[in-house]
């Protein structure tokens, strides 16, 4: 059977540029307090992909996650970011979240007096309202929470405690992935999720992330160390240095970096 060349070429091009592009970052520049941190980041992420971002301290890794989620401390000075073709940078932080952008915080925030149940129910129902869906009943919601608690081996008694208050380092990181499971984002950004975790907690957190993977969603895994990438295997590894992506490879690049470090940047 012959396939029209034009059609197949067109279909392939169409497929690559629009259909499956979840996130498109073009020439992104951002600063904090007048100091430029991101100096022209380009990155395209398609559905189903896992991208690792590695790089030395101060390269701008956490700035990238802050800018994508709309942290008001940072100012975008140039560039565009499209999420499913929509202008992400013009959206308020809560709208970005409801559109499916989720950040697993490097330092999860304690909120005294606001219970996990109340926090999570508000978040889930605000997202549902945004999508035109009815609120979940209290009974169904609690059952859903318990089900998702199990995914990260998180004790369900934590549901009645204030958000992150008095949680151990491991519990806080499990709580981030638990929230990710509740909100079912299309784009998860894991910012140094491995920092401060012992090997058991790391395995549990990583398995939780892997089980949440679908052909439609994608993850950005920001990390310093190869260790996490033994558990969450990336399709692409990018090296961010001095505010730009300077090298991209497959998972073997992470292993290489583990051996050689970032000295090649200075060559």
């Amino acid at each position: 059977m012959r396939i029209c060349n034009f059609c197949s070429t067109f279909a392939a091009a169409f497929d690559q540029t629009t259909m499956s592009n979840l996130l498109e970052i073009h020439n992104l520049h951002a600063s904090i307090g007048g100091k430029e941190i991101l100096k022209g980041v380009d990155l395209t992420i398609r559905e189903g992909e896992v991208h690792a971002i590695m790089g030395p301290n101060g390269a701008g890794k956490s700035t990238l996650s802050a800018v994508l989620t709309g942290n008001p401390a940072y100012e975008v000075t140039e560039g565009t970011v499209l999420l499913h073709g929509k202008d992400l940078l013009s959206m308020e932080p809560e709208i970005r979240a409801r559109e499916g952008v989720f950040l697993s915080f490097q330092y999860p925030v304690e909120i005294p007096g606001v219970s996990m149940v109340n926090f999570m129910r508000t978040a889930v129902n605000e997202k549902r309202a945004y999508e035109g869906k009815p609120a979940l009943s209290a009974k169904y919601f609690l059952a859903l929470m318990r089900e998702k608690n199990k995914l990260v081996e998180m004790a369900d008694k934590l549901n009645n405690r204030s958000v992150n208050e008095g949680f151990s380092g491991g519990e806080k990181k499990k709580n981030e992935i638990f929230q990710m499971a509740m909100l079912e984002p299309c784009l998860s950004i894991l910012d140094e999720t491995d920092s401060g975790l012992d090997i058991d907690a790391l395995r549990i957190v990583a398995e939780g992330v892997n089980r949440l993977k679908t052909p439609q969603n994608a993850s950005i895994v920001i990390t310093h160390y190869q260790r996490l990438l033994d558990y969450i295997v990336p399709d692409f590894v990018h090296v961010l240095a001095d505010g730009k992506i300077v090298k991209t490879g497959d998972k073997t690049l992470a292993l290489e970096l583990e051996k050689t470090g970032y000295d090649f940047l200075n060559e």
Partner: peptide, 13 residues
């Protein structure tokens, strides 16, 4: 920081 954390979960400001 608490406000931003909540917004990041989709809770309006």
């Amino acid at each position: 920081t608490a406000l931003f954390y909540m917004q990041q979960r989709g809770i309006g400001a």
